[in-house]
């Protein structure tokens, strides 16, 4: 009997992450968030504890991003109570997730994101489904000055080209997950 096969995981940005520009005093730090579980939650009726709207909510160890009416993107294990009144569709491999931080993070992002990221307009728990350089992207805020962006896996290379071109002027370093 042959050894049981093991399929290795390859994250969306695995072979793309590299520093850009002058990194002696980088204005931007990028890290690939290798979230193991991502799922679309589609309500089959009201879901206790999840409200409609472009907001991030944390429930029992998972983050839920409101991405449409009755629709969330869940990061982490979906609570059984939520799964009971929703269709839960695995998307773990469908997205690449980057965390972008540093003093020039916003200046970098505003080279592609057409919505206002000023703290007056983009609250700490806000979520936006928008585009970067003609690619769909989901944007929300992480800890401190960090921003998180989820892009479709297939767009990772094009997205990286945009990010690299946009962050190089500030210098961008890669942090390990």
């Amino acid at each position: 009997m042959a050894d049981p096969i093991v399929l290795t995981v390859e994250t969306a940005f695995a072979d793309l992450l590299k520093p850009a520009g002058d990194t002696r005093d980088p204005g931007v730090t990028v890290r690939e968030v290798t979230a193991s579980q991502i799922a679309t939650i589609l309500a089959r009726g009201a879901i206790a504890g999840l409200a409609d709207g472009p907001k991030r909510m944390s429930r029992d160890g998972a983050d839920y991003l409101g991405i449409g009416p009755g629709k969330w993107l869940a990061f982490g294990p979906v609570a059984p109570a939520i799964a009971a009144s929703a269709s839960v569709v695995d998307q773990s491999g469908g997205y690449g997730v980057l965390e972008i931080s540093g003093r020039d993070a916003v200046a970098t992002l505003q080279k592609g994101i057409g919505i206002d990221l000023h703290p007056r307009e983009f609250a700490p728990d806000a979520v936006a489904v928008t585009t970067v350089a003609h690619m769909g992207v989901i944007v929300w805020r992480g800890e401190g000055d960090a921003w998180r962006l989820a892009v479709f896996r297939s767009n990772a290379a094009s997205f990286w080209h945009w990010l690299e071109a946009s962050a190089a002027a500030f210098g961008m370093r890669v942090a390990k997950d």
């Binding site: 569709v89 773990s92 491999g93 469908g94």
Partner: peptide
Amino acid sequence: LRVTLASVTEAWS
């Protein structure tokens, strides 16, 4: 109709 739709094109090879 009680149905939900989700694109999973990206999620599966």
